[in-house]
Amino acid sequence: MLDWLTILTLRASVITVLVSVGLILVGLAVGQRVDMLPVQASINAPVYDELFRVLFSIGTMLFLGICGLLVYSLVRFRRQPEDFGDGAAIEGNLPLEIVWTAIPAVVVLFVGLYSYNIYERMGGMAPLADHSVMHAMPASDPGSDDRVWGGISTISGETADLTVDVTALQFAFIFHYPEGNITTGELHVPEGERVELRMKANDVIHAFWVPQFRIKQDIIPGQPTVLTFTANRPGTYPIICAELCGPYHGGMRTSVVVHDRGAFDQWLTKNTPPVA
């Protein structure tokens, strides 16, 4: 036999479940459709965007859920004129409180682990490619510039197809190609090949950022950093200094040009200074 209370509770549970399912569906739908990021121009970018979609889905669910609950309460439980009474004196509800501690805990744990998986796939967790340099770091070579600090690295074992030395200074980037001995202010890279940037700063901290590649790394004086990426979409993209470095920080930008292999070789030969 069902009394009223049970029916009410049942009804409430059904509504809760329906609303939650609705929220999840809306969140997923929005997350899958969202298109807010610049074009994907490196193999990194789709991986990043996958994480972004997941975060966006979860965020949408939480945000809509909480705002919905809030607005519903404000409308449903608004004070009627001339009603000076108090609401029900409910001071807590242990099971409920456990639920809303547990759900965020599970969510953030999932998000944390998932984003680590993403980071791993980007190569962020890989030990730096140049082991010898890494281990030479402490003490043995005092005061030298050889200390390499993390950035996004090559996945362990793989080596870079092209290495470029990057020097950042107020207010420019200088790219030096050891292969060919080219020095330029504009980065040129071949499509689909792994490029390793070895970056150092002359004066203050700068940062190397290409939004279309979804990568960024600070360039720190005294602590060279490594950043690798594989561009996979020919075109010209901005390189932006993202760390405040002085008055012209906003003007410290240049471009990276992604060529297909043939064009890149042409560029290389054209710009290689004749050997004297």
């Binding site: 770091m137 402490p138 003490a139 043995s140 070579d141 005092p142 005061g143 200390r147």
Partner: peptide
């Protein structure tokens, strides 16, 4: 001390 070795 750990990360910035002394010059001689």
């Amino acid at each position: 001390r750990a990360v910035n070795p002394l010059p001689s």
